[in-house]
Design a protein around this nucleic acid. Structure first.
Lengths: 230, 230
DNA sequence: ACCTGAACACCGTTCAAGT
DNA sequence: ACCTGAACACCGTTCAAGT
């Protein structure tokens, strides 16, 4: 048919189809030829919209990061009265609260697409949504009184925890087959075959417990910091 | 040449060469044909030792997990005197200490091979070293007084944090090119191009900070638990 | 500008054949 | 038992050709 009057493809359509394929069948299932078939075009057609498969993958990753809520990092110092800015900006949310809300949204966005987490965990690269996220977190921590070096570390360790929790289900990693857990080899795993059946509650419970422990520990550290500098 | 008098390959040699290839050039670089070339044999030869590429990958993953130190989970209740066992088992290490030492060893083993972390993060499956690790951590926590449900969560959240920290360098995820960080778009990332140059210290600092915060938070939780049940 | 088929150098895996 | 070459159905990507 050659060139149609109205384009068959767009970057948006390609990205959406790629993400669907990755979600349904895994990263390995995403081939340019398979994706093209899904979109009812021939393989090379995709190269009119993306230079390489990696560039396409980058776009998919950034669309996922774009789902993360960053609004808890808005707001300015003080009580929020009389700043006279164009945009209504309330007072800044206390950092432990903001970090908590952000981490939950971050995790939810990633856990909806676990198969792409290994790609996204490589860092922001030049992807705008990922850079915006890093900027918002770091900025909020610094303006809340954390030294810059500590703020960097907190950005890093929060990403460690969130990507780790979204990468794969802990519970589902244990085979449901009770035969696997020979009591002679693994004396404490007698109930492990039940784990996979409760993957939702186990993984969410672990995430919440870890997040709260992490934030409690950071608050402790912040208090020690404040005590030293006074 | 057909069958040589002494076998050209062994599972051990194949696993070692595969890990080297993954470390040096990434998971995508590991193809059966490329690996075979590296070992000076033809592609199909590998199938005499592993049924599929996935089975080979499983063996590589378990060899990495086998490097994690679990000795801090040895030891028995009480003072360690007069148990009369065959093996000398000292008193049990307090759980926060044991978890700290284990997490560092776990992270070191994984961070030495970041490209394989996405595979290993899928859970133990039927891999013996991974199951042994899960058994040791869970057993130690339960015997230290944690309720079984909480012990499961702690095993999960520790894996989240460690795999997340080993999956990729936080610092190296930020391009060293200062042009990337336009002040209009990312007002707080003006120094982010320096990050990649300090990847070692940034990532290790973040890991240690996070690990200590996590353990502080868990100790707090454990104390609240003990207070409630008394 | 945007699609196509043909082509190139790759994949994982199977299988018959050799010793 | 353990290696080989040939073969099958796949890959990502390039390129000349079509409108």
């Amino acid at each position: 048919m050659a060139r149609p009057r109205t384009p068959l493809l767009s970057r948006e359509r390609i990205v959406a189809a790629a993400l669907r394929l990755i979600d349904d069948e895994g990263l390995e299932a995403l081939s340019t030829r398979r994706l093209a078939t899904e979109l009812s075009v021939s393989g090379p057609s995709l190269y009119n919209h993306f230079a390489t498969k990696d560039e396409l993958l980058d776009a998919v990753v950034d669309s996922v990061i774009g789902e993360v809520d960053l609004s808890m990092f808005d707001g300015v110092a003080g009580t929020g009265e009389g700043e006279g800015e164009g945009l209504p900006a309330g007072p800044r949310t206390p950092w432990p609260e903001a970090l908590h809300a952000w981490a939950r949204s971050y995790r939810a966005a990633l856990a909806a697409h676990p198969n792409i987490v290994p790609v996204l965990a490589q860092g922001p690269g030049r992807r705008p949504n990922a850079l915006r996220l890093a900027d918002a977190v770091f900025g909020h921590l610094v303006e809340s009184g954390w030294p810059r070096g500590q703020a960097t570390r907190i950005g890093a360790l929060m990403r460690y925890f969130v990507t780790g929790s979204a990468l794969a289900s802990f519970a589902a990693g244990f085979p449901a087959d009770a035969e696997v857990y020979d009591a002679a080899d693994y004396p404490h795993l007698g109930e492990a075959h039940r784990l996979a059946g409760h993957r939702g509650t186990v993984d969410e419970g672990a995430f919440e417990t870890g997040l709260e422990a992490l934030l409690d520990g950071l608050v402790l550290r912040f208090e020690r910091l404040a005590a030293r500098s006074s």
